[in-house]
Amino acid sequence: MLPRPASTRASVKNIDAILSLEKREEEKLALHHRVFHAIGSFVGTVQFIVVQCVVVACWIAVNAFFADHALDSFPFPLLATILAFEAVFLTSCVLIRQNATDRILEKRDHLELQINLLAEREATRSLRILQKIASRLDIDDEDCRHDELASETSVDQIARDLQERENAGAVER
């Protein structure tokens, strides 16, 4: 097998780190949360719909065709009660799973923001070095002299500008 290029090895390492982080977060969940996650995951599948339809059809068939010994005769009030309870329970499971997913996504967004800020700082530093090299080599480029990309980006200023634009957009609506 051929050795992987360095960029691919770095990508694999990054992917492994993210997967490891997500696995640790999942392991922190209490057992009942993991059970709710599993139920919430299963509910959103075609298999669940098939199982649900088969169970309801069998319930109706058994109670309709064996009316003499029916546990739940037409209009099937027990079935309706069970399905209503199931709907509430499954909705709760899905919401619990969604809340946990939202927390994970918020953490991932925060991590992504931190990485982007570091990348921006590195790019700014690289541009400054390139400008110094160009200056020492007497390369005259008017675009490089006062390049705003080579100056530090103020995250606070960007946040204030964003807030002002959002507020102005809310006023216009």
Rank of each mutant, 00 (worst) to 15 (best):
G40E: 05
C53W: 09
F48H: 13
A67R: 13
A38H: 09
F76I: 08
S41C: 06
S73C: 05
Q52T: 01
C58F: 08
Q47G: 04
I49V: 10
H69W: 08
V55K: 06
L78Y: 11
T45G: 07
V54N: 05
P77H: 03
L71Q: 14
P75G: 11
L71G: 08
A38G: 10
Q52S: 13
V62E: 04
A61R: 06
I60S: 01
F48E: 09
P75H: 13
C58M: 12
C53N: 12
V55M: 11
I49M: 10
T45S: 12
V46K: 15
A57H: 04
Q52K: 13
F65W: 06
L79S: 09
A64R: 14
V43W: 01
V51E: 10
V62G: 00
D72A: 03
I49A: 14
F42H: 13
G44R: 15
A70Q: 08
P75I: 04
V43S: 06
I60K: 09
D72K: 07
C53T: 08
V55G: 00
V50Q: 12
V46C: 00
A67W: 11
F76L: 08
V56L: 05
H69A: 13
V51H: 09
A70K: 07
G44L: 11
L71P: 00
A61I: 02
Q52R: 12
L78W: 07
A38D: 08
D68A: 13
P77W: 02
I49N: 11
S73V: 04
F66Q: 12
V62W: 00
I49F: 02
I39S: 05
V46T: 14
G40R: 04
F42Y: 15
I39M: 09
C53D: 07
Q52Y: 10
I49G: 05
V54G: 01
S41Y: 02
C58N: 07
G40I: 02
A64S: 15
A67H: 11
L71N: 12
A64V: 01
V51L: 15
A38C: 08
V51N: 11
N63Y: 03
V43E: 02
V56I: 14
P75L: 05
S41M: 09
